[in-house]
């Protein structure tokens, strides 16, 4: 060999030089792929602390999705046993591994915010006070989990739909519900009814009734495609309640009075668990 460097040293030098050349390239590629969602983000320290070995396993090629699926299956088992805390833990671990997997978050919010409270209601033996505390705890947790999911998936419609359902059905909070529908507006894949539902629930939110009414009326005047019986009925009620000057009233008959067949009632949208949006 021409030079006096030993072979192994040359090899290490070449490897290191290649390492230096590729590391900026790789870093930029990693950033791009993270943005596009092609690469799944690595779990943070807190996740590692909780997962330990399986987190390391989960980082391996292909294994990550397998481990996550294992947790998912686990969560279904706990669901069947109504073990809500274990269910939450499994799903949370799945989200650590696949934080951008929307369905994990949706499932989390759904189990925590809908199924767990529903199960509580069937527990006749539980003291009322404890039920109430747990009910509050579950639903509040569901919303927090949903918000954590939205941090990872800011454009998620599905998580918001699920959160809206929790607000609407379990927390009975029209303001929260309205907020969720509002956030959906303009997002890709948002349901068409989101705009109307935003108005309906805003008009029930204390202090925001007028705002809600304005939104609905605007929808009404947008065109006849919005002239749905529910919308008309809501406006008819609101314009009286809010003392809207009569010249601004819409002139429609009460759709219920007509017994008109609802051609365009929102179809029953099956959510996980067969819950149906009215």
């Amino acid at each position: 060999m021409p030079s006096k460097l030993p072979n192994w040293l040359k090899i290490v030098l070449i490897l290191a030089a290649f390492g230096l050349v590729r590391s900026p390239v790789e870093n930029s590629l990693r950033r791009k792929m993270n943005t596009a969602g092609m690469l799944l983000p690595t779990p943070g320290h807190s996740a590692m602390a909780q997962m330990g070995q399986s987190a390391l396993m989960g980082m391996l090629g292909g294994l990550r999705t397998l481990v996550a699926t294992g947790y998912l299956l686990d969560s279904y088992r706990h669901f069947d046993n109504a073990d809500w805390d274990a269910n939450r833990k499994s799903l949370l671990l799945a989200t650590y591994l696949e934080p951008t997997e929307e369905s994990h978050w949706v499932d989390l919010v759904w189990h925590r915010g809908i199924n767990a409270p529903a199960w509580l209601e069937t527990r006749a033996r539980l003291p009322e006070i404890e039920k109430r505390i747990l009910y509050h705890e579950y639903t509040r947790d569901a919303i927090e989990l949903g918000e954590a999911g939205l941090k990872n998936l800011p454009k998620s419609v599905e998580i918001r739909k699920q959160m809206a359902e929790v607000y609407r059905e379990k927390i009975k909070d029209p303001c929260g519900t309205a907020k969720m529908y509002k956030e959906m507006l303009g997002l890709e894949g948002a349901p068409m009814y989101a705009n109307r539902f935003y108005g309906y629930f805003l008009s029930e939110c204390p202090g925001k009734e007028k705002e809600g009414y304005d939104h609905l009326v605007n929808l009404y005047w947008e065109g006849s495609h919005n002239h749905l019986p529910t919308l008309i009925k809501k406006i008819l009620v609101l314009q009286e309640e809010l003392d809207i000057p009569v010249p601004l009233w819409i002139r429609e008959k009460d759709p219920d009075a007509q017994k008109q067949i609802n051609r365009r009632i929102k179809k029953p949208k099956p959510l996980p668990g067969g819950i149906v949006i009215p």
Partner: peptide, 29 residues
């Protein structure tokens, strides 16, 4: 990091399988 290939970077099938958009430029790179 300097000496051993970064294999994690090559795991981008995971995201694609979940439904991430494919950026052709990145794939070429």
């Amino acid at each position: 990091k300097l000496l051993i290939p970064d294999f994690q970077l090559f795991s981008f099938s995971e995201g694609i399988v979940i439904g991430a958009e494919v950026v052709p430029r990145v794939v070429w790179s």
